[in-house]
Amino acid sequence: MRVDTDRFLADLQALRRFGEFRTGVHRPTFSPEDMEARHWFISRLREEGLEAEIDGIGNILGRSPKPGPHLLAGSHLESQNEAGWLDGALGCVAALHLAAAGLPVDVAVFSDEEGHYGSFIGSRSFTGLLEEAEIDRLANRYHGKPLREALREAGLEGRPRLAVERDRYKAFLEMHIEQGRQLEKGGLGIGVVTGIVAIWQWKMTIEGQQNHAGTTTMAERRDAGLAAVRLLAMIDEEFPRHCAERTVWTAGRIALTPGAPSIIPGRAEILFQYRDVDIEVLRRLEEVLRRCVAESNRRERCTATLEALSLSTPAVSDPALQDALADAAEALAPGRWQRMPSGAGHDAQYLARVMPAAMLFVPSINGISHHWTEDTKEEDLALGMRVLAEGARRILAG
């Protein structure tokens, strides 16, 4: 087995030309730039001797002609808007070069991991978790185009959707940039992912009384905006007492109604999420969140309600796969690697439902991702490719 890291880096550079934006890419799902990248990638799969096809949801599968057992590897090609050139693309090109190195690896490209039209629609389709009725309902979150229309414009309408052949694969592997600073701060080159966090998303609604901002005394007010601020401050004070080391939480949206400077807000809506890889931590924080809402209702003249929007399940990386990747990292980068959780979601979390799965991280410069300045040193990319290939070899031999 020989990995050509120069060719690997050249393919990464070639892929970044599709939808080039400053030093990153703008390659939204099913855009012309995205489809050009997909067709280029299919041609590269075929050049390496794989049987490649694209399905009715935009997924690409390149099947290895080599005898089994097989691995499945891959990621996604589309990007966030005006974002980075490595997020997703790295895992696709790395999978291609596992196959190019002579390993019995099928290469998968999953569509819309970035969520322009839905939540992981490509990997959920591949693993049997996406119904036709949901495809009928979905539309682009930025400009409202129905998913069916986008598929038709992309030339995908009427194609069957691929489904995973569970018996064909020993495991799924995905390489990705870290999208954080833990590896860089530690002077490390490789992260062996222990698991992918679950994201628990909530909506908090505070009902007050809309009224005149000049004539209503402070004692008379039922200000939903101030009640929302105080509730979030309470949560931010309580969560550190109950969270784990890598737990994070975010109030990503606070909307006040009617949102005018001279009107006391009569309603506030908060979209709130927290993430952790441990289900017990997630449940504990739910109890804390509910207590905070109850305490807000005791203190305030406004009424707060809590609604769960999405309570996902953490995806723990397969221990044997972790060990194989860790052994490969120690062999090729002794002392320059660590085990770590993923704070972001990835296609691997859905593949983990149908087969053993694991991920490998390489550093992100300054921890930047989802922005056009996203980058990783070439030596770190090449090291990641070598470690992934050696790990894949050990998994196949095991």
Score class of each variant (00 low, 15 high):
residue 217 T to D: 15
residue 217 T to K: 08
residue 217 T to G: 06
residue 217 T to R: 13
residue 218 M to R: 10
residue 218 M to G: 01
residue 219 A to C: 05
residue 219 A to T: 08
residue 219 A to E: 14
residue 220 E to T: 05
residue 220 E to K: 14
residue 221 R to S: 12
residue 221 R to T: 14
residue 221 R to I: 08
residue 221 R to V: 09
residue 222 R to L: 04
residue 222 R to Y: 05
residue 223 D to Y: 08
residue 224 A to E: 09
residue 224 A to H: 11
residue 224 A to I: 01
residue 225 G to T: 05
residue 225 G to I: 07
residue 226 L to M: 03
residue 226 L to G: 01
residue 227 A to K: 10
residue 227 A to N: 09
residue 227 A to T: 15
residue 227 A to V: 14
residue 227 A to L: 12
residue 228 A to C: 04
residue 228 A to M: 10
residue 229 V to Q: 13
residue 229 V to Y: 12
residue 230 R to N: 07
residue 231 L to F: 01
residue 231 L to R: 06
residue 232 L to R: 03
residue 232 L to H: 06
residue 232 L to P: 00
residue 232 L to D: 01
residue 232 L to C: 02
residue 232 L to Y: 09
residue 234 M to Q: 14
residue 234 M to W: 14
residue 235 I to F: 11
residue 236 D to G: 11
residue 236 D to M: 01
residue 238 E to W: 14
residue 238 E to C: 04
residue 238 E to K: 14
residue 239 F to R: 09
residue 239 F to D: 13
residue 239 F to H: 09
residue 240 P to I: 04
residue 240 P to C: 00
residue 241 R to Y: 10
residue 241 R to M: 13
residue 241 R to N: 15
residue 242 H to P: 00
residue 244 A to H: 10
residue 244 A to W: 00
residue 244 A to C: 03
residue 244 A to V: 04
residue 245 E to G: 00
residue 245 E to V: 03
residue 246 R to Y: 08
residue 246 R to D: 13
residue 247 T to G: 00
residue 247 T to P: 01
residue 247 T to M: 09
residue 248 V to M: 04
residue 248 V to Y: 12
residue 248 V to N: 09
residue 249 W to C: 06
residue 250 T to N: 13
residue 250 T to D: 02
residue 251 A to M: 04
residue 251 A to D: 02
residue 252 G to L: 07
residue 253 R to I: 05
residue 253 R to L: 10
residue 253 R to N: 00
residue 254 I to H: 11
residue 254 I to C: 12
residue 254 I to P: 05
residue 255 A to T: 10
residue 256 L to Q: 07
residue 256 L to V: 06
residue 256 L to W: 15
residue 257 T to N: 12
residue 257 T to L: 14
residue 257 T to A: 14
residue 258 P to L: 10
residue 258 P to D: 10
residue 258 P to H: 02
residue 259 G to N: 10
residue 259 G to T: 00
residue 260 A to T: 08
residue 260 A to W: 07
residue 261 P to T: 11
residue 262 S to A: 11
residue 262 S to V: 08
residue 263 I to A: 12
residue 263 I to V: 15
residue 263 I to Q: 03
residue 263 I to C: 05
residue 264 I to F: 03
residue 264 I to M: 02
residue 264 I to R: 11
residue 266 G to F: 07
residue 267 R to T: 04
residue 267 R to P: 02
residue 267 R to M: 00
residue 267 R to L: 06
residue 267 R to I: 01
residue 268 A to Q: 06
residue 268 A to M: 05
residue 269 E to D: 05
residue 269 E to K: 06
residue 270 I to M: 01
residue 270 I to N: 05
residue 271 L to E: 15
residue 272 F to A: 04
residue 272 F to W: 13
residue 273 Q to Y: 03
residue 273 Q to C: 09
residue 273 Q to R: 11
residue 274 Y to H: 01
residue 274 Y to G: 07
residue 274 Y to W: 06
residue 274 Y to I: 02
residue 275 R to V: 03
residue 276 D to H: 03
residue 277 V to S: 08
residue 278 D to E: 14
residue 278 D to F: 11
residue 278 D to V: 08
residue 278 D to A: 07
residue 278 D to Q: 13
residue 278 D to Y: 13
